[in-house]
Design a binder for these strands. Sequence first.
DNA 1: AGGGAACTATTGCATTTGCAACACTATGGA
DNA 2: TCCATAGTGTTGCAAATGCAATAGTTCCCT
Lengths: 218, 218
Amino acid sequence: MENIKILARNTLFRGLTEKEIESILFYLNPVVRKYKKGNIILAAGAAVTDVGIILKGRAVIEKEDIRGNRSIISELGESSLFAEALACARAEHSPVTVAAETDAEVMFINFDKIMTVRAKTEIAGRLVKNMMTLIAGKNIFLNNKLEHASKRSIREKLLSYFDELAVKTGGRKFKLPFSKTALADYLFVDRSAMMRELSHMKKDGVIKYEGDVFEIRK
Amino acid sequence: MENIKILARNTLFRGLTEKEIESILFYLNPVVRKYKKGNIILAAGAAVTDVGIILKGRAVIEKEDIRGNRSIISELGESSLFAEALACARAEHSPVTVAAETDAEVMFINFDKIMTVRAKTEIAGRLVKNMMTLIAGKNIFLNNKLEHASKRSIREKLLSYFDELAVKTGGRKFKLPFSKTALADYLFVDRSAMMRELSHMKKDGVIKYEGDVFEIRK
DNA sequence: AGGGAACTATTGCATTTGCAACACTATGGA
DNA sequence: TCCATAGTGTTGCAAATGCAATAGTTCCCT
């Protein structure tokens, strides 16, 4: 089916042909659910036993504190996988919420099933290895984010993040993958204070930007 | 040997008897190195192919920015494992430094060897599973830290962290696992500003503390 | 016992930040 | 087309924070 192509794009199924994915899915008993824009896909506090894969639409992993400050942990696009660490560690209470940013379709697979499919050993081994690479990758992502968060001023946080984007793009110019509002959430700072700092940085000649296209000025 | 008992305490070898650990080590070809207090165990920028396990002493994972702000990513005690995500993702340049906090002894094991020991299948399978649980656990740790870092004031960062410690201890009272200096680094804030905030919190009756013993006052 | 190193504690000051308020500009549905 | 919603951009202000300086304390090493 159509979904197989989307699954194939996820690291979890890397190295497997579409036929192999289809055959292994048979043993994994996935469940597909649909969500309306804004709906909750995984509620904070819920027990986590499955990993999720976005088949259609977009979602965000977020966290909210007592006073209602929302912090975006990360964005999930088509074929993104989430909740794998929580499922692997058998989390009783999810500390985060996953919400649909647009109408979305999500496939859920039981984590233990992934780890214990004995069906076709080589394929199963592949899955396990891929799952690990994936979790390690998120690990590194979190470390990156922590690096930005560790900076003590808004300017430094921005520059730290911009550096990462520039390196990823391979130049001094890059496009924000976020709205500026979301960027402020991502960096854990006040939006208006961030806007002010962006203006200052532009005035100081540290960066140039127009809309969501930025350039670091040496 | 003596070291086996230390290894046995690490999640990586969970579920294996000391005999099994000894036999699998034979295939893993570990290397043991010794470090003096303050020495660098893993330098930022180096390629990472091995995971490390602390056999003796303590170390810290840290990160330093251009201006020399040191941020502690985490503490490593006896039998702690580190660099597993970097090794798993085949990082070309380590973004962090690991330094000996006391005289230390560290065992290095090649990551790919762990993943490919064919020697005794059940044991090898165990290792892989354990490695994954481990990486997932660090993942959750990083998420926790990120939660503290996401708070917008020093007071909230402290309370967020104190909450975690209290929950871990299972009461309102807990002992700081850090010096206050290190705590400030851990939370990415200025030490003197943090001290000031601690005083205010004590005066406001939010917390009590004496040395490194704290109590949250509801 | 003496000296150094690391940690604790406090304070003044300049700057940064969060917060609140407001206006303006897309954008997408009904 | 019109309205609602989300994002952008700016500003004043009070409060929080980083920074620097300084002093006292503790602990370890010789």
